[in-house]
Simulated assay, not measured.
Amino acid sequence: MNLARRIAARINGTRVPDSFGGSLEASEHVLASAGSGPRCVLVTSHGLWLPEAEGDRRIGWHRIAKASWEDPRLEVIEARAEEVVEGIEIVVDLAPQRFSLEPPGRVPQTVRQRVERSIAERQRREVDGGGVWFVQRREPGVDGILLQVRPDPGADRAQVRSLTAGIARRLRS
């Protein structure tokens, strides 16, 4: 991150770790940070920056399926689009990632607020073998709503696709 953005973030009261190696967008604002060295996390208006072997990577708020806090550990489950049916994403959860944050500062509460704020609406429907969540999400920095479909493990995939295609047709009309 460039020097001017580091200074602005410090003036606003947010500590930007020196080890942060990501590149923030011009419209992206730092909200909180925690951890130290190569294991720091950074919370911004656009998402959660997590440390990885290849460098820091941002997960947009609309891609976080679940985030939980059990002192001193933040657990994040990222959702990945497995399939797109008529413009609607069918997502699956990736393996949980865990980060020890000492001290955690405002990171846990800010992550929770941002994930919840990214959800515009959610509804559940039942299909053979389980249920399906239809979640309308706000994507940071983008106008409009993204519809994600999250089937339970074991939910009948053909029914999930059919239900998703029906919803897509109704949305277009």
Rank of each mutant, 00 (worst) to 15 (best):
D143C: 09
R114W: 00
P151D: 08
P17I: 07
R122M: 09
S173M: 10
R112W: 07
V30Y: 06
R172A: 07
R122L: 06
F99S: 02
P151N: 09
R161C: 14
N12F: 10
T14G: 08
R58E: 04
V132M: 00
P51T: 12
G55S: 04
V142P: 11
M1E: 01
V132T: 01
Q136L: 13
R138V: 05
A79I: 04
V85I: 14
R125H: 10
V111M: 12
Q159L: 01
S36T: 15
R138I: 05
I90T: 00
I167R: 04
D156P: 04
W69E: 14
E89V: 05
R157S: 15
V115F: 06
T164D: 07
S27R: 11
G144Q: 11
I90W: 00
A32H: 12
V91H: 02
F134L: 09
V142A: 11
P151M: 05
V16K: 07
R138Y: 07
R63G: 15
E70A: 10
G105N: 00
A165I: 00
P72W: 01
A53S: 12
V85S: 12
R6W: 03
A95E: 14
A32S: 12
V127E: 05
L147N: 11
I59S: 06
P38V: 06
M1C: 02
G21R: 01
E82A: 14
R98K: 08
G105D: 01
L48V: 05
H46C: 12
E28N: 04
T110H: 02
I88S: 02
S68L: 14
A165K: 03
I11D: 09
R73L: 12
Q148P: 04
I119V: 14
N12A: 14
A65Y: 06
A34N: 08
D156K: 05
D71I: 14
R124T: 12
V127Y: 09
E78N: 11
P108G: 15
S33C: 01
R39H: 13
D128P: 06
V107R: 00
I88F: 01
L163K: 10
I88V: 10
V91I: 07
P103H: 04
A26I: 09
N2S: 10
S36L: 14
R73Q: 13
A32D: 09
L48G: 01
P96Y: 15
R58G: 05
L48I: 04
V160F: 05
E139Q: 10
S118C: 04
F134T: 01
A165S: 04
P38T: 07
L171R: 07
P103L: 04
R10H: 13
I77C: 09
I11K: 07
P153Y: 07
R6S: 03
R161A: 11
A9K: 03
G21I: 01
D143A: 13
A26F: 06
A8L: 13
A9D: 07
V16T: 10
F99K: 02
